[in-house]
Design a protein around this nucleic acid. Structure first.
Lengths: 217, 217
DNA sequence: CGTATAAATGACTCAATAGTCATTTACTTC
DNA sequence: GAAGTAAATGACTATTGAGTCATTTATACG
């Protein structure tokens, strides 16, 4: 028998709920994996009761699929903000692409998506295929495109682009997977900015000493 | 009422069971993740009843820890078979280390371990810390060691080894994670041998065209 | 201010599976 | 070949969490 209730026990927010539930679910799925994620906990994190979740998503699997679909779209939207200008050099384009990946994806909640999809790939082949066909295929196209242009213009050596595109993204992709797995155990968090610089330096210039310099010494 | 039973219904194999259970469990954990793995299924895969599993491992978590511990040791044993001779060049050493990783780990069931630990890291921080402190720390030491020796001898440029060691292993590590996630959706399986060659070529020589050659043209 | 209804909930059911245990059986040893 | 026992099992219990539903409540609108 509360004499004067200041606040209503809950609010009706039918338009904001779906997004809030997706955000909460992404965080939980990334942290615990699909099977270990409790819908009770997702709801709590979104500030609603478990039954409310079922007003917006049919069941756990549909919620999971919605999270992946939505995050994928959000990731593309973020990357699209970096307009691609074909006028500059291939080197500048490649640098810009990787920097965009770091700033728009690696340092956002979206960074959890690859780890999530990788971990659940064999339990949910259709989700993995969707990610593969939408995200990976497009990523490959963009990167092999830049590499081929650079080779055609004589800016890059004639490397095998089918392998090179994976090698180009691997350090950044792995570093975001790392961030969601071992970050807690490392003395200092990985500095993405410096990591990117180091990668670009190695990528363009290689590890071996330039012979001219060695001869000069 | 079988008139003449040829075979006994089961055999006593107390010394072989633990290993067989670990093998079955690694495969299941890698494929489905910790939570989604059914002990009934692990037992079936190892050719025993579920209750038998409990004769050898206290519970699911202890089985999981045993799998990780045992696989880690096995991975080291495999890599140790490649004796490291400090006499050769840093470049040859680095090549040998990466080749050993491909031949001894990437192309064996052990390749599932990194994905498993990464996926379950936040559910089992103590397992992740164990992997981090044992496997990653040693890996970092070995690779930064070779890089530093190469720099000291003038064979390599003076790159930032704290970042470079990650970049050196990233393509191979990512490719084994890939193998356990998206392999089914790719036209052809990734050729580790050629991938390694492409990586080494890029790593040592870089992407940018050598200026001398460009000037000559 | 009263009413209609969409939004939200708490308390429930039911299925799945981790873990237990009394019983059976393969194998050793004398 | 009989007895003893370690190895293995099938059938069981207990718990957890996905999904349901009757009821409550916020809020829009006349």
């Amino acid at each position: 028998m509360p004499v004067s209730q200041a606040q209503p026990r809950w609010q009706r927010r039918a338009d904001a709920r779906p997004q809030e539930l997706l955000d909460a679910a992404l965080a939980e799925f990334v942290e615990r994996g699909y099977a270990a994620t409790r819908l009770e906990e997702v709801a709590r994190r979104a500030g609603v009761a478990k039954a409310t979740l079922y007003l917006y998503y049919e069941n756990k699997l549909e919620l999971f699929k919605a999270v992946v679909r939505h995050s994928l779209v959000a990731a593309f939207d973020e990357l699209a903000k970096e307009q691609r200008d074909a006028a500059t050099s291939a080197r500048a384009q490649l640098t810009k692409l990787l920097a965009a990946f770091v700033h728009r994806v690696a340092e956002s909640p979206l960074s959890g998506l690859p780890k999530l999809v990788i971990a659940e790939a064999s339990n949910f082949p259709d989700v993995a295929r969707f990610y593969h066909d939408e995200m990976i295929r497009r990523g490959r196209e963009v990167f092999t495109g830049v590499l081929e242009r650079g080779i055609a213009s004589g800016e890059f050596r004639a490397v095998d682009v089918d392998h090179a595109w994976r090698i180009v993204i691997a350090p950044l992709l792995l570093s975001i997977i790392w961030k969601h797995s071992f970050a807690a155990f490392e003395a200092a968090p990985l500095d993405f900015e410096r990591h990117l610089d180091a990668h670009l330096d190695l990528l363009f210039n290689g590890l071996a000493t330039d012979r001219r310099k060695r001869i000069r010494r």
